[in-house]
Measured scan of single mutants.
Amino acid sequence: GSPLAQQIKNIHSFIHQAKAAGRMDEVRTLQENLHQLMHEYFQQ
């Protein structure tokens, strides 16, 4: 897949890990990143 698709997959797993660790501030930051990446992805 594209590097962007790979990045989106990575962030999904980072979010999963951050949630499991209870780091909600990190989850929020990652979700904002994910949102931006998704936006770029669909602009392609």
Rank of each mutant, 00 (worst) to 15 (best):
S2L: 13
E40V: 10
R23I: 02
E40L: 14
H35Q: 10
Q17D: 06
T29C: 14
I8Y: 02
F42E: 06
S2H: 10
Q6D: 09
Q44D: 07
A20R: 09
H35A: 13
G1T: 12
I11H: 02
N10I: 14
H16I: 13
H12E: 08
H12Q: 14
I8Q: 00
H39R: 14
H35F: 10
I11C: 09
D25L: 06
L30N: 01
A18M: 07
M38T: 03
F42P: 02
Q17G: 03
K19Y: 13
T29K: 14
Q44G: 08
Q17F: 06
Q43R: 13
Y41A: 04
E32T: 08
E40C: 15
T29D: 06
I11G: 00
G1V: 12
Q44K: 11
A20G: 03
Y41W: 13
R23M: 07
A18E: 02
I15E: 00
H16M: 14
V27D: 01
Q31Y: 15
D25Q: 07
E32R: 14
R23D: 06
L30S: 01
A20W: 07
A20F: 03
E26I: 13
E26H: 05
Q6K: 07
H16P: 00
L34F: 03
A21H: 05
L34D: 00
G1C: 10
Q44N: 09
V27S: 01
M38L: 13
D25K: 06
H35R: 15
Q6N: 06
G22C: 07
H12F: 15
K9T: 05
N33Q: 15
S13D: 09
H35E: 09
S13L: 13
F14V: 05
L34E: 00
I8R: 00
Q43I: 09
M38V: 07
L30W: 08
E26Q: 08
M38G: 01
L30R: 01
K9I: 09
E40R: 12
Q6V: 10
K9Y: 08
Q36E: 07
Q6G: 04
Q7I: 10
E40M: 13
S2D: 10
N33I: 15
S13V: 12
Q31H: 08
P3M: 14
F14S: 10
S13H: 12
V27G: 01
K19G: 02
T29W: 11
I15M: 05
Q43S: 11
A5G: 06
N10A: 14
Q6F: 07
A5H: 09
R28F: 06
A20D: 05
H35C: 09
M24L: 11
H16G: 06
F14D: 06
Q36P: 01
R23S: 04
Q36S: 08
V27M: 05
A21E: 09
H35L: 12
I15C: 08
L34H: 01
Q6A: 07
D25A: 06
M38K: 02
A21L: 10
E40P: 02
A18P: 00
H12Y: 15
V27Y: 06
S13K: 14
I11M: 10
E40H: 07
A5T: 08
Q44I: 11
L30K: 01
Q6M: 09
Q36D: 06
G22V: 02
S2N: 11
R28T: 05
H12S: 06
A20V: 09
L37T: 01
I11N: 01
A18V: 02
F14P: 00
Q43L: 12
S13R: 15
A20T: 07
S13M: 14
Q17I: 12
Q17M: 11
Q36H: 08
L37V: 03
N33L: 15
Q43C: 15
Q31L: 14
R28C: 10
T29E: 10
K19L: 15
Y41R: 03
K9S: 06
N33R: 15
H35I: 12
L37N: 00
L4W: 06
Y41E: 02
S2W: 10
V27I: 05
H35T: 09
L37G: 00
Q7A: 11
R28I: 08
S2Q: 10
G1Q: 11
Q36T: 09
N10G: 04
I11R: 01
E26V: 11
E26W: 12
Q31W: 13
A20I: 11
T29H: 09
N33S: 13
G22N: 06
S2T: 12
Q44A: 10
E26K: 06
K19C: 13
T29R: 15
N10T: 11
A5V: 12
S13P: 01
Q31I: 14
A5L: 14
I15V: 02
K9E: 05
Q6I: 10
V27K: 01
E40F: 09
H35Y: 12
I8N: 00
F14K: 15
A20N: 06
M24N: 05
M24C: 13
A18K: 02
G1I: 13
L4V: 05
S13F: 14
I15H: 00
Q31D: 03
D25G: 05
I15T: 01
Y41Q: 03
Q7H: 05
Y41F: 10
H39Q: 12
L34C: 06
A21V: 04
M38I: 11
M38F: 07
F42T: 06
L37F: 03
A21M: 08
T29F: 09
H39G: 04
I8V: 03
Q43G: 11
H12I: 15
Q7P: 01
Q44T: 11
M38D: 00
L34S: 00
R28S: 04
N10S: 10
Q31R: 13
Q17T: 07
D25R: 06
F14T: 05
I15N: 00
M24R: 04
Q44V: 09
L4G: 02
G1D: 12
N33W: 15
R28A: 09
Y41S: 03
P3E: 13
K19V: 09
I8E: 00
L34K: 00
N10V: 11
L4D: 02
E40I: 12
P3T: 15
E32D: 08
M24T: 06
L37A: 02
R23V: 02
H39C: 14
I8L: 05
H16V: 12
I15R: 00
N10Q: 14
L30I: 01
Q17A: 13
H16T: 11
H16N: 11
E26L: 15
Q17K: 11
I11W: 03
E32F: 13
H35W: 14
